[in-house]
Nucleic acid binder design. Structure first.
Lengths: 131, 131
DNA sequence: GATCTAATTTAGGTATACCTAAATTTTTAA
DNA sequence: TTAAAAATTTAGGTATACCTAAATTAGATC
């Protein structure tokens, strides 16, 4: 299976923090990402070195401000993309999955244009799907 | 720098074959991808083992039918995505670059919906940009 | 046709994200 | 409070896409 990126780790931690409130545990992250606990420990150390999380062995991990900003940016992109895909008739599950991938690879500019476009469509026909 | 995927190798070979007609050389692929020639040689052997290319040492490489199908599919996705992004006001360069990334991560279903959507917009206002 | 040059491959090595097994720490329960 | 169970980390190893340097092969020039 494909290797997980730092962004995927950050997203997993972000969601666990939201659901559980507070810190994310090694085991939860491992389960979320489908990666073994030792690999998680290793990666958490790396993310800490990069200033993305605060990690205390045996106690859990939480996002730093920098990590939080990245997670929130990804979260917004995700929501926008999933919403757009559904608007043009993509199934909710597929829209969700595609958003999950594409949020990591799309530029700020294109995100902004999709956002404007959705807004424009909402203004024209209120609430109706585009298609 | 990020590691190149098999799909990126296939695309590079595809474009070189088109431009040069016939086979792609190790050197051309290396220059296209920004990867050293020895790494290219290594990867070509792997792609051959996977049935994606025909590779003859010192003579060059060309896509197998399987490789060709993948390249053409990526090429179509790329064109559709770049066209869509430009339609909503993304700059040509950015549209191009984003398409280059996203073509690898978007589902068949979403591609189909974007295609239909573009078609519908063309039918309504002929030739005008969407925004 | 021999030699010189350029392209390619071989050889050997690095970094990194993963893994399993074993050791340790923390938590739970008797 | 201590023993058992669960979670986590440490130790050690693998696979792979990359690299540089050296060897080889192919093509050009004299």
């Amino acid at each position: 299976m494909r290797r997980k990126t730092a962004e995927e780790y950050i997203e997993a931690i972000f969601r666990i923090q939201l659901n559980e409130g507070g810190k994310a545990s090694t085991g939860m992250i491992a389960a979320t990402l489908g990666v073994s606990p030792p690999s998680i420990t290793e990666m958490l150390k790396k993310l800490e070195r990069e200033g993305l999380v605060f990690y205390e062995p045996h106690a859990g991990v939480r996002l730093s401000q920098k990590g939080q900003r990245i997670a929130e940016r990804l979260s917004m992109r995700h929501a926008l993309l999933a919403s757009f895909f559904q608007s043009i008739g993509v199934s909710p599950e597929r829209a969700e999955r595609d958003a999950c991938q594409i949020e990591h690879h799309i530029s700020e500019e294109t995100i902004a244009r999709i956002d404007e476009f959705m807004q424009k469509c909402r203004d024209e026909k209120k609430g109706e799907p585009f298609v």
